[in-house]
Amino acid sequence: MMNKLLKYECIAVGRILVPIWVGTAVLSLLVAVTERMNQSFDSLVGTPVIAMVASFLQVLTALFVAASLVVAFVVNIQRFYKLLGEQGYLMFSLPAAPWQHMAAKLLCACGSTVASFLVIMGCMGLYITDTDSMVREPVKIQLALENLGITVFLVLILVLLMVGMYLYLYLCIAIGSRWPQQRLLASIVTYFVLGFAAQMVFIVLMVVGGIIIGNLPQGALDSINQFLLQLSFTTPGSLWPVGGAVVLLLFVLADGILWAVTQYLISKKLNLP
């Protein structure tokens, strides 16, 4: 069932995204070609026409690059919004559980967003020449073996952030659909209210945490310090993985909560307008 849902989801999203990707790739290729032509001609004669075409193409390419990210994002959010609207009449009649619809949409959303990124990076690779070491060097460093750990960590964080971003918007839409008459407005209001509430909770937690730490007996603080120091002395560099794992776990936890609440809303509280 998941496979079929995913297939239809990918077709629906691909219909819109693939042309943009192809456009981006073709434009990038043209930019690369004009750029090289420009460089080789430049030394012989001035060629303002080629230069003009080149800069025009560059602007257009930049637009397509921006579009492939923005459209991927908008389309995927819209797919979930439509699921809880008109399109739900077809989709929720299918013999699939609500969580499967959500999972298919989330997978497709993340997949197509990542794909958009990869397409953009691939396209950039086309016209970044060897001389642009400013770009190449950092990439090389990032991919070097000794930095692999941190790179993987960063990628994981980015993925979890992306998942969280989509899930947060799904949640807002799911809550917004509790008001079928003003679904869009309710979803947008929810977005801001929830965001504000989350910030407030965060601030309160920080303050409470600060107060607790401030009020801890000196002995306890000392022993925590002692423990951390000892840890970093005895096994140098071991704090990084531990800290990283904790951060990742927190992200996973946040994503999990978002998923659980949204799934509850669309399965136990489903109300199509």
Binding site: Q87, S93, P95
Partner: peptide, 18 residues
């Protein structure tokens, strides 16, 4: 649920085909 949807054929009161 999933079980009832496999045996129920539902025509909504609005056009729901994409």
């Amino acid at each position: 649920g999933v079980a009832t949807k496999t045996i129920t054929s539902y025509l909504p009161d609005r056009m729901a085909l994409p």
